[in-house]
Amino acid sequence: MSFDLELSGRTALVTGGTKGVGAALVESLRNAGMTVVATARSVPDSAPDRVIYLAADLMTAEGCQAVAKAALERLGGIDVIVNVLGGSSAPGGGFAALTDAEWDTAITQNLMAAVRIDRALLPSMIKRGSGVVIHVTSIQHELPLPESTTAYAAAKAALSTYSKSLSKEVSPKGIRVVRVSPGWIETEAAVRAAQRLADHAGTDYEGGKKIIMDSLGGIPLGRPAQPQEVSDLITFLVSPRAASITGAEYVIDGGTVPTA
């Protein structure tokens, strides 16, 4: 049995593609033979073969339109969209600390950027009768952390619902839509956050990691996921090997979310 993912020659757009999961995914898709357009607000000066970096602000409708237009012009068509862009910069303090501006930022970054990119690129996929859309959600839409990420969790919940509805609409037209829901991932930003917590608590980095894992109610696997592990899952899901998978959500959290 061959485990060739049959991705050679296909094209992809990855938002948030220069750091963390996005960067790992760009490399995974490239290694699988795809040509990848990767977006971020700032991008490297040079790119490896079959990677095209586009600097754009996807927090604006104009930025999303520009990326979609450039991707179609550069590649002639997009086979795969992976909406990785997301995050939270909200302050601690619970619901009372979340101003209208904080809510707007969370919803724009974690929901509307994906909605706008999809809206711009799906018509070309529908015309061809094929394509894959991946939405990276978060376990926080099931397990929110009220101290600082209520708006983020709510926006990711909205993204998950939107994604499920979209799958019902476009799957009959040949477009698969799948959600990937990570738990805590040990990205560069996560490492910095753990180190800040460690410094504040007077412990080391491993102690900082434990503080985060405890705040999640524990991670049965005993560690956060690595960006490469998440990107490997997504790479499989966008491949023809996953041709019957649509409308589903794949949780990759080391067992963090309890089930009834």
Rank of each mutant, 00 (worst) to 15 (best):
K164F: 09
T60K: 00
R176T: 08
D199N: 11
G222P: 06
D232G: 04
G254L: 11
V37R: 01
R128K: 14
L72F: 02
T108E: 15
E27Q: 14
V177M: 08
L221P: 04
L197F: 10
A47M: 07
A190D: 02
R10Q: 12
A97C: 09
L145V: 06
R176S: 07
S215M: 14
G218E: 06
I134L: 08
V132N: 07
G208D: 04
I212E: 08
K210S: 08
G218L: 05
L237D: 01
Y53Q: 07
T150W: 06
H141Y: 14
I219M: 10
L54D: 01
Y152D: 06
V136E: 05
G208M: 04
Y152G: 11
D253K: 08
R179N: 15
A68Y: 01
T11H: 07
T256M: 00
A61M: 13
S42L: 15
A120H: 09
A194M: 12
R74D: 13
N83F: 10
G9W: 01
P172C: 05
E73W: 00
T15V: 05
K127Q: 14
V21P: 09
A71R: 03
V133N: 04
A38W: 00
R119D: 12
S88Q: 03
G218F: 04
F95M: 14
S148Y: 10
Y53L: 00
L145S: 15
E249Y: 05
G222A: 05
G131N: 03
S244H: 12
P48D: 08
T203S: 03
K127M: 04
A23L: 15
L122T: 13
D57E: 14
I107T: 11
T105H: 15
A189L: 10
Y162H: 14
P144E: 07
L5N: 04
R10S: 08
W103H: 11
S2D: 13
A38T: 06
R116K: 10
T161D: 14
G94F: 08
R30D: 03
